[in-house]
Amino acid sequence: MEFLQFLSWACIVFTVGMFSTGLTDLKKMRASKSADNVQFLPFLTTCLNNLGWLYYGILKTDGTLVLVNTIGACLQSLYILSYCHYTNDKRRVTSQTLLAGGVVCGGWLYFSVLLPQGESQLAQLGLTCSLFTISMYLSPLADLMEIVRTGSVERLSFSLTVATFLTSTSWTLYGLQMQDYYIMVPNTPGIVTSLIRFFLFWRFASVNQGVPSYKLIEI
């Protein structure tokens, strides 16, 4: 098996595995018939990210990007619909979902209609997706600072940390092999933040007084 093909399969398996962590929240909502202890915005922002990269993959005719982000968008849509069904704050959730839909429509109009097809279109879309992905990887930094302050890793998800590390590493190597810096660069922060989380697990695990650091509460 060629190295690029191996990386492609690694990206698919690890990324779908990371997206599937939301099934835990879905199971929690179905069991409690409530969405009170589940965060909604990660589902919404991840879905937007999937749709952006899906369009980028279509323009580049990259089957790996298309497959991964099609599965990701479908899973996030399932989580969003389930959250809308179980939440008591339907007005807020509906308004946020409609706003996200407006962003998708506006983005499609800009990249598909206003921009001429070609390298400029691909470059601007790639840059937009890259910046959005970087912001998602860096968003938990405030929580990490709080963990350093309190010395407790109970709020960290060990399995999600592992999944993020494997996913970001595989996509970084895939982007390097494809010589696509729009794929490689935004996944590098995922490696860095995952290594920081691993260090925090090692440094503060003993503070939890016998509570396994693998008891998972996602950031």
Rank of each mutant, 00 (worst) to 15 (best):
Q124C: 02
V68A: 01
L115N: 07
G106Q: 12
L114D: 08
L141W: 07
M145N: 04
Y214C: 11
V104T: 08
I147Y: 08
L48G: 09
N88K: 14
Y56L: 04
I191C: 07
L109E: 14
T169N: 05
M184N: 06
I183W: 05
N187W: 05
M136C: 02
V103D: 09
W108Y: 14
G22K: 03
L99K: 04
L114K: 09
Q124R: 13
T15N: 10
I71L: 15
S95F: 06
M18G: 08
G107Y: 11
R91C: 08
S120P: 00
V13N: 09
M1K: 07
A100C: 11
F14E: 04
R155Q: 10
Q177L: 08
V68Y: 02
L99Y: 09
N49F: 00
F6V: 13
S157M: 06
N208S: 15
Q96W: 11
D36C: 01
S8L: 12
T188A: 11
V192P: 03
L173M: 13
T24Y: 15
Q209F: 00
L67D: 03
H85R: 15
P116Y: 12
S34W: 11
D89L: 09
F6P: 02
L54V: 03
L156E: 06
D180H: 07
A31W: 07
G210E: 09
A142M: 09
S159T: 12
L176P: 00
Y181P: 05
Q76D: 09
F43M: 06
M178E: 13
S77P: 05
R155C: 10
D25V: 03
K90P: 01
L67F: 15
A10R: 03
S32H: 07
T21W: 07
I219S: 13
M184W: 05
L26E: 02
L109W: 15
L51H: 04
V66I: 15
Q5I: 11
W171Y: 10
F40D: 08
K60F: 06
V103P: 08
Y181L: 09
K33V: 10
T45P: 03
T167L: 06
E2F: 06
V162G: 01
F199Q: 11
Y56S: 00
V68C: 09
I217F: 03
R91W: 04
F165M: 03
G57A: 04
T193N: 02
I12P: 02
F199R: 15
L23D: 05
P186E: 04
L216D: 14
G210P: 02
I134C: 01
V153F: 06
G190H: 06
I196W: 08
A123D: 14
D25Y: 04
R30S: 14
Q209H: 15
Q39N: 10
S194D: 08
R203N: 13
M18C: 12
